[in-house]
Design a protein around this nucleic acid. Structure first.
Lengths: 207, 207
DNA sequence: CCAATAGCGTGATATAGATCACACAAAACC
DNA sequence: GGTTTTGTGTGATCTATATCACGCTATTGG
């Protein structure tokens, strides 16, 4: 039994370690090429973490120590309106996305958001200190994060415009065409909350 | 007369040149210190531009060559919904803000937005090529733009959350408390369009 | 394997905010 | 300096979407 367990662990390390590291490298190399040693160095600033479904990655009031790169699974970042207790989804993140409460992370303040796991999740954690360190040491990484942030900014502008100009139905159809697989992966309630519509209305829209 | 005009121009250069350059330097140095020669070098990648009220900085369909740093005046970036012709304000920018159609600028595609001057405006133009150049040559600038982009990202997330969770009245009051001077500076119609409310509703809210 | 919970659809009703339609005031412009 | 144009307030409606209330189904967990 000990032997078997050991082998299983070996396999697991192989699978969730080396293969998963590869995911981060591929992700960075979409923007800038890296040497093996650069990547190893970068990776040494991340720490892996696994979470089960429904586990919190960030809870309202927490100090937010890390930004999280998602290796597998799906998470939601949401705000709970204290007036009516309703939850509003700011972000959904899955493989190859980054997620955290950025306001709290960048400013060292405590979180106003909750982030929890909609599925079992594997992430790589990057502290602000380590992020700034690798950015300062490797111009490439500063460049990488600048580019990521720029794309993120554009995506958020698009979402704002969509909230300002489109009806609930148009937003729903836009999301469906942008991320068709999402609808098989998460409950409609989450989609509704992400789109800023009640779940009842969403249910009627999708017909 | 020639003498007087010359003196006036001198003054103008002094005022709108040196003093204005100073604005950019101050702005960058909020994030990273610069030597005189670094700043001069950076500045050499910008070109100044003046526009009168109602002039377009970017028009729908244009290729967007530049990002614009606002030295003086106020501009709006807006999308016109082709279905009903209504305009929706994505961004308002004044002194010390950057504005452009970022989607078009970063991707080299043509603009879906219009940007025009609500007041007489002075901007410094930065082409994507020059931006990438100074970022590549000066790690400081890559850092500066990363930090700017990060703050922008956080600001947009806040706006999205506000659109998702707050009523029109709450959004109005939030904006009023964040930017009280704005309300003396632009017509209420623009505020309404920025908040995603009709001008009639805004008028009723503000009582 | 069965109970508890979460997800989903759907009718009836309520409401925030849009739209339409004015009037009047204040700028901007020739 | 008078006339377009732009901005603003306000009443009377209309409508997209929220809310409440229910039942049924799928999933989860002990």
């Amino acid at each position: 039994m000990i032997g078997v367990s050991f082998l299983a662990d070996e396999f697991h390390v192989l699978y969730s370690g080396i293969n998963m590291k590869h995911k981060l490298r591929q992700h960075i190399e979409e923007i800038t090429p890296l040497t093996d040693s650069e990547f190893d160095y970068i990776l040494s600033h991340f720490t892996p973490k696994k979470l089960r479904k429904h586990q919190f990655l960030v809870q309202e009031g927490d100090l937010v120590k890390n930004d999280y790169f998602v290796l597998s699974g799906l998470l939601k970042a949401y705000y709970i309106n204290p007036d009516d207790g309703k939850e509003h989804i700011l972000q959904l993140a899955w493989e190859d996305w980054w997620i955290t409460d950025y306001q709290a992370y960048f400013n060292g303040t405590s979180s106003t958001l909750n982030i929890d796991c909609v599925e079992e999740v594997q992430v790589l954690c990057l502290s602000l200190h380590n992020r700034d360190k690798i950015c300062a040491e490797l111009h490439k990484m500063e460049h990488f994060f600048r580019r990521k942030s720029n794309s993120g900014y554009v995506a958020l502008q698009r979402r704002i415009l969509s909230l300002l100009t489109n009806t609930a139905k148009e937003r729903y159809e836009q999301l469906l065409s942008d991320y068709p697989t999402l609808f098989q992966r998460v409950p409609k309630t989450l989609i509704a909350s992400f789109l800023g519509v009640s779940r009842e209305t969403l249910s009627r829209l999708s017909q």
